[in-house]
Amino acid sequence: MAALSITVTDEEVEITLDADWTDDAPETRAALAEALPVAGEAARWGDELYVSVPVATAAENARTVVDVGTVAYWPAGEKLCLFWGPTPASEGDEPRAAAPVNVVARVDDASALAAVEGGARVRVERA
């Protein structure tokens, strides 16, 4: 998948595809790339934003504990998730999804997301 741009309300967040993660979810990334651009109203759950996307893929090397800055797809809810800190499911400071997610990319600097509230408009497109 080409580089992505995620815009949350008026804040653009740069996305990279980390070389270490390129094989984690190739089918999910391909399905997401095919669906781009996508946009919608995001919900916030702790330090996670998630938005519905028109993608339906199964779990692919899915995990619940992720790194700060992770961009992941939640197969159970067909949502794209952005993690920058603990969620209500976390144990300590780790970002933790409610259910296993497919990691597709990483935000280099997720600090701008901390001020975003639920209901923000999120748009994901090719950079």
Rank of each mutant, 00 (worst) to 15 (best):
A89R: 11
A98T: 02
E27Y: 11
W21E: 12
A58K: 11
A120F: 12
A33S: 13
R121C: 00
V8Q: 06
P26R: 02
A3W: 04
A56R: 14
R44K: 15
L113I: 10
A58N: 10
P86M: 08
A76E: 14
R123G: 03
P54N: 10
S52L: 08
F83K: 01
A115S: 15
M1P: 05
P88F: 11
G77Y: 02
T87Y: 01
W84D: 06
T7V: 15
R106D: 08
A25H: 00
D108V: 14
D109R: 09
A3V: 06
T87D: 04
A114V: 14
A3E: 13
G69H: 02
G46C: 04
L82Y: 02
S111W: 09
V103I: 13
A105P: 11
A30P: 03
D10C: 04
A89I: 06
E14N: 10
E91P: 00
R123Q: 13
G92M: 05
S90W: 08
V71D: 01
E41T: 12
G40V: 09
V53P: 01
A30K: 06
I15D: 07
P86G: 11
T16D: 10
Y73P: 03
T7W: 02
L49E: 00
K79P: 00
L32I: 15
D109P: 09
R106T: 13
A43F: 06
A31N: 06
D67I: 08
A72L: 07
V51F: 00
T70M: 10
D23E: 13
W21P: 00
V122R: 00
P86R: 14
P75K: 05
V107A: 12
V55P: 02
V66Y: 02
V65E: 14
D18P: 08
D93R: 08
L17G: 05
S90H: 05
A97E: 09
P75R: 00
V38C: 12
A62R: 01
D24P: 01
T87W: 01
T64N: 11
Y50S: 08
N102E: 08
F83V: 05
L4R: 06
